[in-house]
Design a protein around this nucleic acid. Structure first.
Length: 808
DNA sequence: GTTCCTTGTCATAAT
DNA sequence: CGATTATGACAAGGA
């Protein structure tokens, strides 16, 4: 029982200490604190329960030395920070502008072009069929995977060919740069943090949680390459964003609800009947791609972006116009909240950019390039179908006036500019998405992210899992993750080098007041063991000892020793006073701590109670040395000197048995012993004190040893936990990237579909002017982004849209 | 002589 | 309730 308790308590304590240590390290990053909470939740959340178990022991332990490692952490932290920055800078630099731009260019050729930058994006209505099918499939896979998201993202992201990514207008990239700023992360308010935390939890609840990490392991192999590609891609994303921005500008914004700030969707004539064959084809394609589309919970969510019914001309400013109040009913969040979100989003944007970039390449390539990736994608597609279907299903393609939200919403810092409202009702999914992002923030995010992110991903997130939140969070998380990872990595690489470890140890030692020295004299087999003989001799030799000397008297007589050991079952040769227990302890320690440098110097033998093993002393002085008083005197002195106080006292009190017996005999035997000998009160008291002190001495030694063990174990545990944490963070980051890639694919798929849509006259709908809205009922509406724009700029086009019902 | 370390001891709480 | 154990704090002794 006791033993178990002990172990349990110790374990708990150790665990708690480990947690605290880790927490400390994490806390060191508090400047990053805003981001950390979610991470903590992920990694430490469960542990929090443990932390609450503050046992008495734990308290004590912690008091002693729990936190000192901080100093080390700080160094570590700064180093990590620096490295992180470097890493980020690398990402930026490396990021090649690719996918999006290329893709856009492609679109341009086919579709009607709105304006230069935008045209590319918007144009895509008529997509080259060649790519379309394949692209769609890929996209579908990606998207599906993305939708499923959490579980299975593992396979290839970064590996997709970047074909689509052609060089995009780098011009805007500057806007996107923010990611670098660490400050952004720092700017988060507590509320933001809380919000993030909540979102994060939601994310987890939705399934985005930790399971996600599993996949990472598979991907690890490709990590390095991926990262590079990702970084490059990220740059591409940036360009893509810029591109998007351009589009937004060109297209302007739709009408927004004054109160809500939501865009007011305009109902367009149903396109169903009128849908051109191409549209149907596209729909079919979509269906095939996303069989699950219909399943959705998708509450008729329309893309927020798409929803703006009335859009005013393509003006960049318009996109950024009024902030949209949360579309979602859920989000009662007042403007302040939105602001918070904006802040968050701003941060996320930066990160998103990075991520997207990273993701893009994989995204593109995934289908084509790496078999692994494709496979994974395929898997995803199947699994993920539902969410995508919902999004994609084009049942009712209406052409509401709002065209722009798409671009505007995305690009404009505030989504509000283009109210996301779906034609009639904002589906929960959309709402979700919006809510999660809260208009303005979303925009910022989108700016950073690719169109895909804006269009599809949000939906997917919102509809499917409520992962929309995750999206928003992802940015933050990523930042945090990156930071953490960098820190952890650094820690692993640099931070926990032997030097630091030693430092830690030192700190521990100093703090706890413990010495790591395990090689204390008693422990050392060599030094003190002989003492018994000498002590015995001394005792016997001592003048007064004769009366009880036979028993081994005060000192340690050989006899007494033998007896004691036998009785105690102790192993002979150990440090006498301590006996077997102690011997075990002492012997164990040295080996364990031998590696510690600090211990090396600790060879002192401070044990007072040890019988001196002086070569000078005759082995059995008592009997032989009658003649040599001098020697005896010397021995006496030595004995006195080396005997413990209790031994001396016992000798002085003429206690008839050895201190070992007094201390180590079981209670019964001890009582028997006392009963055998008639002892005075003083003697009895002394004997009891000796016993008490002797036991306490052993206890103290045990306690110290335990402390040391605990510290060492904790050290190891901390290191292990750090490693795990770093690994998990890495995995998380990869997951986020993959998710983004999938989103991008989804978006591209969306665009593909859109490009295939044809009006009655067989003309493609310009992507810039029309957008697809997905209804909760699975209907898909083709909505004009800006009626005005259309009318003004492209009178030829019909402002009104056809609603096409596409069944999935 | 000072500082640091180790060890023993005490007081106290927990077992 | 007494014995034992655990542990923080203190002090002695030694290097």
């Amino acid at each position: 029982m006791l033993y178990l308790k002990k172990n349990l308590t110790e374990g708990l304590i150790q665990f708690a200490i480990l947690l605290s240590l880790i927490g400390v390290r994490v806390d060191v990053d508090t400047y990053l604190s805003s981001q950390l909470p979610p991470l903590r939740e992920i990694f430490l959340g469960p542990s929090s329960a443990y932390t609450q178990t503050q046992f008495h022991n734990l308290r004590n332990t912690l008091d002693g030395y729990g936190l000192h490692p901080k100093s080390v952490d700080l160094d570590y932290y700064f180093t990590a920070r620096r490295l992180l920055n470097e890493v980020r800078s690398l990402d930026r630099l490396q990021v090649p502008s690719t996918e999006l731009s290329a893709w856009l260019a492609y679109r341009d050729t086919e579709g009607p072009v709105v304006s230069s930058p935008q045209s590319g994006s918007s144009g895509g209505s008529g997509i080259a069929l060649e790519n379309a099918s394949g692209g769609l499939e890929e996209m579908g896979n990606l998207e599906s995977s993305a939708v499923r998201g959490n579980g299975t993202l593992d396979q290839g992201y970064g590996q997709e060919p970047e074909e689509n990514l052609g060089a995009v207008a780098p011009e805007d990239s500057s806007e996107l740069h923010n990611d670098d700023d660490d400050s952004s992360s720092n700017n988060l308010t507590k509320e933001d943090i809380d919000l993030i935390d909540i979102l994060w939890r939601q994310d987890i609840d939705l399934g985005a949680g930790r399971e996600v990490f599993d996949y990472s392991s598979r991907q690890k192999e490709n990590k390095v390459e991926k990262r590079r590609s990702e970084e490059e891609e990220e740059e591409d994303d940036l360009t893509g964003d810029s591109w998007r921005n351009g589009l937004n500008q060109g297209q302007g914004e739709g009408p927004v609800d004054g109160e809500t700030g939501e865009s007011i969707p305009q109902q367009l004539p149903s396109l169903v009947d009128q849908t051109s064959p191409s549209l149907q084809e596209c729909l079919r394609l979509l269906e095939a791609t996303f069989p699950f589309v219909e399943e959705t919970e998708f509450p008729g969510s329309v893309y927020p972006e798409l929803e703006d019914p009335s859009e005013e001309g393509p003006s960049t400013s318009s996109s950024q116009g009024p902030l949209l109040s949360p579309l979602l009913p859920q989000t009662d969040s007042p403007l302040d909240r939105e602001q918070q979100w904006q802040d968050i989003m701003a941060i996320m944007d930066l990160q998103d950019m990075e991520i997207n970039e990273a993701a893009d390449p994989s995204f593109n390539t995934s289908s084509s390039s790496s078999g692994v990736d494709t496979g994974s994608l395929a898997d995803f597609s199947f699994s993920a179908h539902t969410p995508i279907n919902q999004d994609v299903s084009l049942h009712q393609a209406s052409l509401p006036s709002c065209s722009q939200d798409f671009q505007g919403g995305f690009f404009s810092p505030e989504l509000g500019s283009c109210p996301m409202e779906a034609v009639g009702t904002a589906p929960p999914a959309t709402l979700l998405r919006l809510s999660s992002s809260n208009s303005s923030d979303v925009d910022s995010t989108f700016e950073a992210t690719n169109l895909t992110d804006v269009l599809l991903p949000p939906r997917l997130n919102g509809s499917s899992n409520g992962t929309g939140l995750p999206d928003l969070l992802t940015g933050l998380l990523e930042e945090a993750l990156l930071d953490e990872i960098s820190l952890l990595d650094l820690a692993l690489v640099e931070g926990f080098n032997p030097a630091q470890a030693s430092r830690l140890r030192e700190e521990f030692d100093s703090d706890s007041g413990l010495s790591l020295d395990s090689s204390r004299s008693p422990a050392s087999p060599s030094g003190s063991e002989t003492s018994s003989s000498s002590s015995s001799s001394s005792s016997s030799s001592s003048s007064s000892s004769s009366s009880f000397s036979e028993e081994g008297a005060v000192g340690y007589s050989t006899d007494s020793e033998a007896v004691d050991f036998e009785e105690g079952g102790a192993v002979g040769g150990c440090y006498q006073p301590e006996f077997s227990k102690f011997c075990r302890m002492s012997y164990q320690d040295p080996s364990r701590f031998s590696h510690l440098p600090q211990l090396e110097h600790v060879a002192h033998n401070h044990t007072y109670n040890l019988a001196p093993s002086h070569p000078d002393l005759p082995p059995a002085p008592g009997k032989k040395g009658v003649g040599r008083e001098k020697q005896q005197q010397q021995q006496q002195d030595l004995l006195d000197k080396q005997q413990s106080r209790d031994e001396r006292r016992a000798r002085a009190m003429k206690i008839p048995f050895s201190n070992e017996k007094i201390v180590h005999l079981p209670v019964e035997e001890f009582n028997e012993l006392l009963s055998k000998h008639r002892l005075s009160e003083a003697q009895l008291a002394l004997v009891r004190d000796i016993r008490r002190r002797g036991k306490n001495k052993m206890a103290a030694q045990n306690c110290r040893k335990r402390k040391l063990d605990t510290i060492l174990n904790l050290e190891q545990g901390v290191e292990a936990l750090r490693r795990d944490k770093a690994r998990l963070l890495r995995e998380k980051v990869e997951f986020v990237r993959s998710l983004r890639q999938m989103k991008q694919k989804m978006q591209s798929l969306h665009q593909e579909v859109f490009s295939r849509l044809r009006d009655e006259s067989g003309r493609p709908y310009p992507a810039g002017e029309f957008s697809l809205q997905y209804g909760s009922d699975g209907s898909v509406l083709l909505v004009p982004r800006r009626l005005r724009d259309e009318q003004q700029q492209q009178p030829s086009r019909k402002p009104e849209k056809k609603q096409k019902d596409k069944k999935k």
